[in-house]
Every structure is written in C-alpha cells, then in structure tokens.
Design a protein around this nucleic acid. Structure first.
Length: 167
DNA sequence: GCAGTGATCATA
DNA sequence: ATGATCACTGCC
C-alpha cells in the first residue's frame, strides 16, 4: 500500500511492544510517509544499500535505523516486496518525538528487518473508536535536504485531537 | 541557538 | 582511509 495511506491508517491504532514479557501499548498520534525511490526524502532514493535493504522486504517489515549517533527511528514498510516505501512513527501515547518513542519502548536495531506480527516483539493493533487525522497535514520534519519540492510535501499526519492538546 | 555522537555511504 | 551527512534531542 502507498505509505501515505498507511500513515493515515496507523493514526489511533495501538503500537504494542513486548518488553520482558510485559505488554506496553501506546496510541499512535503522529506519522510520516516516505513514498519510495522517487521521493527524494526517502532513504530509498539513494538506492538499495545495506541500510535500506529491509525497506525492500514485505509490508509489515520493521525498518529501524540509527541516526545522529544517538537515536533509533522506528518505521514500518508499506510497499509490496521490492517496493521500498515506509512510515515513520513519530509519536505515540503522549511520547512526542521519534527518538524518545524508541527509547521509551526499548526499540533498537535488534528488531530491524523483523515482521510486525502479533505476539512478536512489536506489532500494531486496531485502536478502539474512530480517529480523525487533521484535515491539512503538515510537512515532514528534518528533510530539507530533499529540496523544496519534497520537503514541502504534506506527508506528516497527526491525530486531530492531538493537535488541540499540543497547543 | 547548537553540541553531541557514531553508523553509513561516497570518494579514493 | 577519510570526511560529510544525518527522518533528533536536550540544554543554552
């Protein structure tokens, strides 16, 4: 599925992590879509490399990478096998910021390339009730390197209520 | 505002 | 082997 579609659908769903047998579930509040090789902000735009390899896996594959020498980023692959598109989970359960989220849930490279399956280390569940994304999505964060055309694209998605609370 | 921190990738 | 870059955070 296209990453922007999945990015919207993930809003309001539960991100579930198993930590030493304990279950921790957080409601996803913010996501970003990375559409594929043609999207210059997408890592796959730089080709198929060691790092991006897992993006070419089946949908549901976790793409977790390390940036700035400090932070782990959690993504889930959305494209069919061979089509590198993914969604970055930026915030969930009131934990804002993608790196703080992974730190909270103890997510690191050990999960990279694994499938997000129920009962595994990390998976997604349908949230209860409906959840509206804000009408006009804002642009993605930290992707200026992709040039104005792609950095301005409205591919960041937030739960509508989260926007009000964030004020 | 900007330092910190190290994997990754291009270049050689 | 070297250097630039980086889908960020926390502190100034």
């Amino acid at each position: 599925m296209p990453a922007d579609v999945v990015a919207r659908e993930l809003l309001g769903r539960a991100l579930v992590r198993r930590i030493r047998g304990k279950r921790v579930a957080l409601t996803i509040l913010e996501t970003e879509a990375y559409l594929g090789p043609h999207d210059l902000a997408c890592h796959a735009a730089r080709g198929r490399t060691t790092r991006t390899e897992v993006m070419y896996g089946p949908p549901g594959t976790l793409y977790i990478y390390f940036v700035y020498g400090l932070h782990w980023m959690l993504n889930v692959v959305t494209g069919a096998e061979g089509e590198p598109a993914a969604v970055l989970i930026r915030s969930a359960g009131g934990v804002s910021g993608p790196a703080r989220l992974t730190r909270t849930l103890r997510i690191d490279g050990a999960l990279n390339g694994r499938l997000a399956e129920p009962g595994s280390g990390l998976w997604f569940e349908t949230g209860k009730g409906s959840c509206k994304a804000i009408a006009t999505p804002p642009p993605r964060i930290g992707v200026d390197y992709a040039g104005p055309r792609w950095s301005a694209r409205k591919l960041r998605f937030l739960v509508a209520v989260a926007k009000r609370e964030a004020r």
